[in-house]
Structures are given as structure tokens and as C-alpha cells.
Design a protein around this nucleic acid. Structure first.
Lengths: 122, 122
DNA sequence: ACCAATAGTTTCTTACAGGAAACTACTTTC
DNA sequence: GAAAGTAGTTTCCTGTAAGAAACTATTGGT
């Protein structure tokens, strides 16, 4: 009798797994959370502002990541008719729905650090 | 007057960013969430069980990812004195603290799918 | 003796992510 | 007219993630 998968073959499980993959794929890469976090914090930033805020990122990556985020409607891009032209990036209403998730990530990471410190005290 | 970063230079912000990086680094890779989700669902699984449950993964990746998770105390590995030897992997108490985060990821992904379907109805 | 199942490790190869630096293009300021 | 600021793009290079396949090693079943 061959064994089969028994845990992960319920439909609810499949859908959840797929959903997690979707989310992670949209937020993949080294910089997405930094950019989103920065835009949630200080709304309406120019390209050069973001380049300064998101420490370590280069123009290529910033440009590419912003395009990804814009494509997924998490960030809006507005060209202003100033001279020289400036571009304003902002978090969208939809992008703001990521806040609880980002908070969970931050919360877990902070607690993780604390648990390591505690473990070292022994 | 040179512009400086103004949004992300508060200490709270720095700590949160670092925490998010920590979390993402611990959960990095294509398979971590699948493995953790599977172990949360069905506790105590053998290596071959996981190989069957986590669809698409190979032995090398499963082995490596389990080592990572064990190193970070999210998963426990117990060698049973059966013959032939079997190994039981289980989520730790600490690993279970990831549940809220995993739920948020799944929730957001499911809502994302629904928002795309709605947008197509227009 | 041979196959199947346990739990991995090792090797080889490929694809992609990401970084550095140079470049485009326009405008304002000195 | 040169420098500096706006917002990117392009090219070239490298390290790592990941997959496929073969291999080790032990034991049980027929």
C-alpha cells in the first residue's frame, strides 16, 4: 500500500498554501518591505527621496521594485508638471491593507531578538 | 542644502525595519512556509512524509530547509529508535508563534485574489 | 539474492537576483 | 557654459538559490 499525502490535500489547505505563495511572490526581493514601509510612514516621496530613505538601494533596484509594486497596485506613481519634472510615489489604499501583515512581521522579528537575548542570559 | 533621510531615521523605524529583515531572512527561500504550514497542520511527520506532503520539493532542499528551521528552533528533529530508523519532525512551541503571521499572509493572499476577480467583473 | 523503504549527502548545472558604474535627457542655478 | 538636481535605463558582472540525478548506508520483506 503506497502512502499518499494526507495533511495537505484538503482544499482549504491548498488554497491557503497558494495564497501564501501569491503574497510572498508579490512581496519578493530584498527591498519591497523597506520601500512599502517607507511609503506608509512618509507619504508622497520622490524617486530621489526614496533613494535616500531606503539605505543601500541603488537606482536600478529602486526603479525595478517600484515598477513591480505599481503593477500590483500597491504603490501609485504620479508625474508632477513641475520643472524639472518630479515624480511622486505613494502607497495606495490597497497597499495600505498590508499594514497588519507588516506589523506582524515586525512584531515577530522583535520578539525573536528578545528570545535570543533571554536564551543568552542562562 | 543637502537633503537627508527624514522618514526612516527614527529609532523605532530602524528597529522595525531590522526586525522585518530578521523575520524574512529566517523564513527566506521557496519552501519554508510550506514546510512550517505542513508541520503546524499535521504534527510529527517523517522525512518521507514531508517529501510527499510538500509537493514539488526534492530531498536536497527539504533536508537543507529543515536544517535551517531546526537551527532557528522553529522545528524539532527526533531520531526514533525504530528499525529502520525513522526521524520525526515537529513544530516547536516557538515555531507555533508564527501562526498569526502565517494567517495574515494567507488572509492577504486570499483577499488579493478576490480583489483581482472583482476588478475583472467591471 | 534482490527490491523497497528509511534518511539523507554529493555533484553538477542553470537561472535569477542583485550590485556598480556609466549613460541619457531635461532644467535650473551659479 | 559648467555643475547639480530631477528620474530613470543600460550594461556588465557575480554570487547564490534551486533542481536533477546519482550515491551512501541500514534494515525488512519475499
Amino acid at each position: 500500500m503506497k502512502k499518499k499525502a494526507v495533511v495537505n490535500n484538503t482544499q482549504v489547505c491548498q488554497i491557503r498554501m497558494q495564497a501564501i505563495s501569491d503574497t510572498m511572490s508579490i512581496l519578493s526581493g530584498k527591498w519591497k518591505f523597506h520601500i512599502l514601509g517607507t511609503l506608509i510612514e512618509g507619504n508622497r516621496l520622490g524617486f530621489m527621496d526614496l533613494l535616500r530613505e531606503v539605505k543601500g538601494i541603488g537606482t536600478k533596484m529602486l526603479s525595478k521594485e517600484l515598477q513591480d509594486l505599481e503593477m500590483n497596485h500597491l504603490v501609485s506613481r504620479t508625474v508632477m508638471k513641475t520643472k524639472p519634472i518630479t515624480v511622486e510615489y505613494a502607497i495606495t489604499e490597497y497597499g495600505a491593507t498590508l499594514s497588519p501583515l507588516i506589523n506582524e512581521l515586525a512584531k515577530w522579528g522583535i520578539e525573536y531578538r528578545q528570545s535570543i537575548l533571554k536564551a543568552q542570559d542562562n
